[in-house]
C-alpha cells in the first residue's frame, strides 16, 4: 500500500470537505484519482477504513465514506444526539 496513494485519498476527502462535501461515494474518490488503478484505490480505502482513518456512513440503502473524525461530528449534528458517548463505528 503506497503512502502516496493514502495521502492522495486523504487529500480528496479534505479538499471536498473544504467545499462543504463531507460524504463521498467510493466512486467519487476513485474518479478524482485517475492516476491510480480503480481496484487499488478501493483496496487502499478499505485499509484506511480498517485503520479508522475513514468511516462508512449508510442511509441503509446506499453507503458513503467519510473522514472518521467528520463522521463522529456529523452524526451528532445530523441525528441531534449531541450528548451521546457513542461507539467506534
Amino acid at each position: 500500500m503506497s503512502e502516496e496513494m493514502r495521502a492522495a485519498i486523504l487529500e480528496v476527502f479534505q479538499k471536498n470537505l473544504k467545499k462543504g462535501k463531507k460524504k463521498l461515494y467510493i466512486k467519487e474518490v476513485v474518479n478524482e484519482l485517475p492516476q491510480f488503478p480503480r481496484s487499488e484505490v478501493k483496496v487502499c480505502s478499505q485499509k484506511m477504513l480498517d485503520d479508522g482513518i475513514l468511516a462508512y456512513w449508510s442511509s441503509g440503502s446506499t453507503t458513503y465514506l467519510m473522514l472518521k473524525e467528520e463522521f463522529e461530528k456529523y452524526r451528532h449534528e445530523a441525528e441531534d444526539h449531541p450528548e451521546e458517548g457513542e461507539e467506534k463505528a
Binding site: L49, D50, Y56, S58, S59, G60, A78, E79, A89
Partner: peptide
C-alpha cells in the same frame, strides 16, 4: 423514525440499519 447513519460493527460497512 429518522434516517440512518450508523452502519455496522467493527470492520463492517453494513448489516445495521440505524433508526432514531
Amino acid at each position: 423514525w429518522k434516517h440512518g447513519g450508523i452502519v455496522g460493527v467493527k470492520g463492517y460497512g453494513g448489516g445495521v440499519i440505524g433508526r432514531y
